[in-house]
Design a protein around this nucleic acid. Structure first.
Lengths: 216, 216
DNA sequence: CGCATTTTTGATACACGTCAATCTCCGTGG
DNA sequence: CCACGGAGATTGACGTGTATCAAAAATGCG
């Protein structure tokens, strides 16, 4: 939708992560923020998201890519390859993320596990739909909460949540707002104390935030 | 979303259609526009939509129902009951519709058929997400096209499309607009010649329209 | 250090939301 | 048969939240 700015993003080309087929251990695969994970109509298998967040897109009849789904830790992406052998969406990392092939064992592919995946995907789709109604501030707040995860480093405060925010452009396409509005709302959330930039080495990171759980 | 008008609708109570368990032949079941087909957390089986259109809702943590999916002819609803035995959404008829239990045979439940259903549901979810971005006129136009079907009566002009529009309130919740805006856009589509009310008996119906396929 | 990209911030315009009045449809009962 | 009433739909006037355009600031990378 929206004939907006082309997604010219340096990181799209700079493939710093390992490709699915290249790693020394094919088990865990990492992708950098902004990196394409797979393309629609390409061949490959399904994956489980161990950490990070991913956007799914479909090719419009007009040729553009349009946002059509979100995956966070624990979600399965590309399950349609069990049927078609080809992906029906393309996937791009919203933040650095780690994947493992799915299903882990061949037998797990059939029956209940698959259904569970199906049910989870439907619930996720409902959440994404809900991300696109209500006022801008609410929408961005809900997106942040969807992306927030418990920190990975052991020894972190229990119950603490962290989030690595996607680019404003990505957040805009997900929430059906503009990048400027999203930027304003993020600033607003920081002023309200919901988001606090985290110290990373010597300076504060503008991407990784700690999330103060809201009254809701 | 939106603490808007409660869905007080006369037709909700007037259950003119046959209930799933009551019909003389349990095979085909009809529901009238506005009628609840099943409730979230209720028990039941999955269904295939033979005609008409259906909205799916989930119960918000706050207690309200919020739109979370759309089903039209050919779609499967309630497939999650194969796993949980209970529905995870509730379903309401947007226009008079006819359902049959699914899967027709027990063996069809496993394997490929299920996957195909899964894949179709994902594509449908992507379409619904797309319904919520762009300008109001475009959104309503796309919704109409999603709901449009070839007429059922034999002898109809080939390639002709018809649609029975849902209530403006339903259309508003689906597209994340207000009912007033939807009403204006429908009027606009009629003036533009895309929608033409159909003669039904002696007067023109304000619900059933013939759809002139757009240049698109 | 310097350039390209992304993000932030501001000023302005407009599409849509909101509020309210009227109209159409339908069912109901006198 | 027509008067009545309620629910949904339409239309209008007005306000506002967000898009749009533009420029500056911050960030990242060679």
């Amino acid at each position: 939708m929206k004939p907006e700015q082309p997604r010219t993003r340096a990181a799209d080309e700079a493939r710093r992560g390992r490709s699915p087929t290249a790693g020394d251990r094919p088990c865990r695969v990492s992708f950098a923020r902004g990196q394409r994970i797979y393309s629609g109509a390409g061949r490959g298998s399904a994956w489980r998201v161990l950490s990070g967040s991913i956007r799914l897109d479909r090719e419009e009849p007009t040729g553009e890519q349009s946002f059509s789904g979100l995956a966070v830790r624990g979600d399965i992406i590309g399950a349609e390859t069990l049927l078609f052998e080809r992906y029906s969406f393309s996937a791009t990392a919203l933040a650095d993320c780690v994947l493992v092939p799915w299903p882990e064992t061949r037998s797990a592919a059939a029956g209940e596990s698959l259904l569970r995946t199906f049910a989870k995907a439907e619930r996720r789709a409902a959440e994404v739909i809900a991300l696109r109604c209500g006022q801008a501030a609410e929408r961005v707040r809900r997106l942040v909460l969807m992306l927030a995860q418990a920190p990975e480093d052991e020894g972190a405060a229990p119950g603490e949540l962290q989030v690595v925010l996607p680019s404003r452009q990505d957040m805009a396409e997900i929430t059906a707002l503009t990048l400027e509005t999203v930027s304003r709302m993020v600033s607003q959330l920081r002023q309200a104390g919901m988001l606090a930039p985290q110290r990373l080495g010597s300076h504060f990171s503008q991407r990784r935030f700690s999330v103060r759980a809201p009254a809701d």
